[in-house]
Design a protein around this nucleic acid. Sequence first.
DNA 1: AACTATTATATAGTACGCTAGATAAACCGG
DNA 2: CCGGTTTATCTAGCGTACTATATAATAGTT
Lengths: 146, 146
Amino acid sequence: MSEPKNASRLVRKQISFAVYGAAGRMARMHKPFLDPISLTFPQYLVMLELYTDAPRTVGELGTALGMDTGTITPLLKRLQVSGKVSRMRDPEDERRVIVDLTPTGLAIQEEVWGVSEKIKTACQMTEGDLTALRDTLHNFAHPAKA
Amino acid sequence: MSEPKNASRLVRKQISFAVYGAAGRMARMHKPFLDPISLTFPQYLVMLELYTDAPRTVGELGTALGMDTGTITPLLKRLQVSGKVSRMRDPEDERRVIVDLTPTGLAIQEEVWGVSEKIKTACQMTEGDLTALRDTLHNFAHPAKA
DNA sequence: AACTATTATATAGTACGCTAGATAAACCGG
DNA sequence: CCGGTTTATCTAGCGTACTATATAATAGTT
């Protein structure tokens, strides 16, 4: 009776479980590289986004990264406490908060960028496979509107 | 001047960001189906695992799902509070805690199983594509040992 | 039986990630 | 310029997830 009645129902068969496991492993793979520069994985994504274009408002960062305001606000506060970003009200529109890189944040730019290369190496997948997987997941996460 | 100097560094180009986004969207897709039966997404995974084989020890569940003891213990306590599982010390080895389904937990089995079909439909991907993606991610999350 | 090591689980602290509700500035029709 | 709506952000609370540490039972050794 410990035999599963319907093997197709196994957790391991679920696409959701595969994505869940991959996300966890991805974060764990980054940790040893991010710990020395005192960044968590979501903080790392925010820094990458700021290196691409800064300053940005809180809302722009949230939209670009798919993070909720209730997630990104405390995250940015922690980045501010660790000295990597600054936050100030936009004088033009005081509803907005402008996030910018500090000298400290800029100083670790090369190290932050280097992390992605180390990850790609650790993945042990070909460049082509990685690109294909990335595009498949991206299409899933951001499907075309109906 | 808004052109990034190094397009390969963009967050959107990162495989890690693609996995991160897909995991978030996956959890959000499950929410409307899981809310009516008062389950969170990780709790849903635990229930699936228990329907496959119960009773199980805390350690067995954690290994099967890739969850840490610090994650799964409070999760199981919440499932116990909501009446879906029971927890008791193993009389054979009192270090272990045995987790089992309650009548309440068994009663929602068909509903829980039905969720995965609804997700597959909502994904708008072919069965073959889903299987291929699942296997790719599974290989990534559980690579062959060195 | 006492000592030590190992194993299984629990607890505490930090950091997401979500939702709901609050706050305050900007906009807009009359 | 006045009141209502919209927009941008913040706050609070719950549920994961992780790390490090603690507890407690079992197993092995002497």
